[in-house]
Design a binder for these strands. Structure first.
Lengths: 108, 108
DNA sequence: ACAACGATGTAAGAAAACCTAACATAATTT
DNA sequence: AAATTATGTTAGGTTTTCTTACATCGTTGT
């Protein structure tokens, strides 16, 4: 039932590299965090750490900003998407439960 | 014919994070570079950048060192492996060439 | 029209992270 | 015994990152 914390989601990239990879300024990257669009982790010393997924998200954000969408709206979209994803996951889990009840492996 | 520079091979991780992820000291990590077991890239300012693949390699190296293998021997093994991999790639390419010659798409 | 907000730049000072070079050491190898 | 290997440690310097504050300019709300 595999659920590896894959390369894509591991928070290991510092802000300078993110700047290079996205073309955004550090100011922008930190600002989008302030607006709760992105959530880096921190080193013990307080430096931000991002994942590849974060980088992709930042590039999506940048595109929307260029299209005149405000951080506020982007955040709303994101919350909607998150909710939908969670519900999908829940449905899947429920179906899984049904299947297990009917056909699941039982203890010997 | 797909050749994504995947997350795994992108050099984006600084040495401090590598230290955390591998449990090795920075001294060790730099030393293995000196012994030509690993080849980080650099930022413009000179800081080392590693990939996830590098991290896995470092953990393999660490294991061998614990088993008493010397960096020198590890390096030899690695060169052998690399050579074998290259030859396999070459064979594959040649077969591909054969196939193309026989059945390949021709210009209209 | 004007005040508030949104997005970004820039500057300052401090702290964290990283660099190289050098010396030390204990355990092998030669 | 001398050289080499692997690693720790220290020192001084440079790069990277952090937060806070102020500035600007365009957009939004009243």
């Amino acid at each position: 039932m595999s659920n590896e914390a894959s390369y894509k989601d591991k928070k290991v990239i510092t802000i300078g590299i993110v700047r290079e990879l996205t073309g955004l300024s550090e100011r922008q990257i930190r600002y989008y965090e302030e607006r709760k669009l992105i959530f880096p982790e921190r080193t013990p010393g307080g430096s931000r750490k991002y994942s590849f997924a974060d980088i992709e998200l930042l590039m999506d954000i940048a595109e929307k900003i260029e299209d005149g969408v405000q951080t506020f709206e982007i955040r709303q979209e994101m919350m909607k998407d998150k909710k939908k994803a969670e519900q999908a996951k829940l449905r899947k889990k429920m179906i899984q439960g049904q299947l297990n009840a009917q056909f699941g492996i039982r203890k010997a």
